[in-house]
Simulated scan of single mutants.
Amino acid sequence: MKPEPPILSEGLRLFFPAAAIHGAIWPVIWVLLYAFDLPLAGSVPTSQWHAHEMIFGTYGMALAGFLTSAVPEWTNTPRWRGNSLLALLGLWLPGRVAGLVGADWMIAPSGLTDAAFLALLSWAIIDPMIRRRNTSHAAFAVWVPTMLGLEIAIRASWILGDHALSQTLLQSALIVFVILMALSVTRINVVTINHAIDPTGETRRYRPHPGRRNLAGALTALYAISAVILPTSQAPAFLALAAAAAFFDRLAEWFIGRPLFRAEVLALACANLLSGLGLTAIGLAGLGLPIAPSAGLHIVSMGALGLAVIAVLSIAGLRHTGRDLLLPGWSHAAFVLVLVAVLVRVLPELGLADGLVGPHYALAALAWAAAFACWLRGFLRFMVAPSDESRQELTVG
């Protein structure tokens, strides 16, 4: 019997490169070939296709890689591997083709495959938790199915031509990813900070504050719900500011002295900081201050989530292939490029870089794509190579 290739032995080995390829290639095609237009675009605004692809394309596949590897660790159940992973990948791909060309006739069929992908991913999370009666990570079993519901609603609103509703739903999906990011970082940060403090692993000096584990995510969830049901009220703005305060409070977890300046630790801290800054901008804009609401959304979508995703791809990519947590220079370059992308994209919206107005769309997209290309350059060889199982560690707490 032909041996199974290493890339099919665990979800992150296949899905992390798929997410990075999507993040590296799709923006380049949009910028260099399409000039931000889509060749078959119809009634759906191209900006919504682009937002959908960032959330359900790049971030969706990165989330699948993380959860199909982390949940078996949390529940002590077998990993999904081989054909099961290929089935998930096969369901994810049609939606990416639709997002690349923007054809209206592909909305329904690619929506069905995207929904099937999220439904299968939800089952991969819920089933082992039920079998092991594990409730400590049950929040993921709530929010991933929520993404499934939002995907169905977005596709339905596109088909019905209600693009104002689909825009609101896309923003809600983005905020749900912020919640998932907060939950994921809380868990992966335990190993990351302890390793930074004591690389020998002989001690585990850091323990997360119990009150901080879920507060930021819970307040962000309240903001997302209120933004949908109370769109004309100022209540969502105040809840956004409350969620921002919770993210700022979490920064205390990174008061660890010099180890903070290790790239993997600093990237997670900056992702948390940018979440707070983005939600602050959203809240202040909602209260009537002269801040473009899109600025806050881009700080969150490109800055906070971009850094968090690259960090998780790097940290878990090393640990789950049996390597020490010493990030290669390609990861450092990816972190810098994500920050460049968000600064170039946001500063003109804040009136701080008028000279970039116009070219900033293309420059930000190219810097963003280059960040994922750097990760691929540094990590693809790890994903396809056998690992030393004896050196693997848990990447989550």
Results as ranks from 00 to 15, higher is better:
residue 293 P to G: 09
residue 37 D to H: 15
residue 238 F to V: 11
residue 53 E to A: 07
residue 311 A to E: 05
residue 242 A to V: 01
residue 272 N to C: 14
residue 302 M to D: 02
residue 26 W to R: 14
residue 139 A to T: 13
residue 16 F to E: 01
residue 104 D to M: 07
residue 327 L to G: 00
residue 32 L to I: 02
residue 161 G to H: 04
residue 382 F to P: 00
residue 389 E to F: 08
residue 71 V to Y: 03
residue 159 I to L: 14
residue 309 V to Y: 00
residue 176 V to P: 07
residue 77 T to M: 05
residue 334 A to S: 15
residue 312 V to E: 06
residue 194 N to E: 12
residue 384 V to H: 11
residue 295 A to L: 05
residue 204 R to I: 01
residue 349 E to M: 15
residue 368 W to Q: 04
residue 174 L to W: 10
residue 261 F to H: 15
residue 256 I to K: 04
residue 105 W to N: 04
residue 111 G to V: 08
residue 227 A to L: 02
residue 329 G to W: 11
residue 111 G to K: 11
residue 238 F to I: 11
residue 275 S to W: 03
residue 32 L to W: 14
residue 262 R to I: 10
residue 272 N to I: 13
residue 5 P to F: 09
residue 279 L to V: 04
residue 22 H to P: 12
residue 35 A to M: 00
residue 210 P to C: 04
residue 301 S to K: 13
residue 111 G to T: 12
residue 377 R to Y: 08
residue 161 G to L: 06
residue 287 L to G: 08
residue 236 P to K: 10
residue 140 F to V: 03
residue 95 G to F: 04
residue 357 V to P: 00
residue 196 A to W: 14
residue 98 A to M: 12
residue 254 W to I: 08
residue 109 P to V: 12
residue 97 V to K: 02
residue 19 A to N: 07
residue 189 N to I: 01
residue 72 P to R: 10
residue 224 A to P: 01
residue 269 A to Q: 13
residue 144 V to A: 01
residue 193 I to G: 09
residue 309 V to C: 13
residue 113 T to I: 02
residue 243 A to M: 05
residue 303 G to C: 04
residue 291 I to A: 09
residue 47 S to A: 15
residue 292 A to S: 15
residue 387 S to T: 13
residue 333 A to Y: 03
residue 17 P to E: 04
residue 381 R to Q: 08
residue 58 T to K: 10
residue 50 H to E: 15
residue 193 I to F: 03
residue 231 P to Y: 11
residue 299 I to A: 01
residue 243 A to C: 05
residue 221 A to I: 09
residue 25 I to E: 12
residue 304 A to E: 00
residue 312 V to G: 01
residue 54 M to R: 15
residue 180 L to A: 01
residue 307 L to N: 11
residue 122 S to T: 11
residue 138 A to Q: 11
residue 156 A to L: 15
residue 20 A to F: 10
residue 115 A to H: 04
residue 209 H to W: 02
residue 76 N to S: 11
residue 304 A to I: 04
residue 257 G to D: 09
residue 128 P to H: 03
residue 214 N to H: 15
residue 167 Q to D: 13
residue 269 A to E: 01
residue 158 W to M: 08
residue 104 D to N: 14
residue 371 A to D: 00
residue 386 P to K: 14
residue 396 V to E: 12
residue 196 A to P: 10
residue 362 A to I: 05
residue 208 P to A: 13
residue 282 I to R: 15
residue 220 T to R: 04
residue 265 V to H: 07
residue 211 G to N: 07
residue 313 L to Y: 00
residue 359 P to K: 06
residue 266 L to Q: 05
residue 346 V to S: 07
residue 185 V to L: 15
residue 38 L to Q: 10
residue 212 R to T: 08
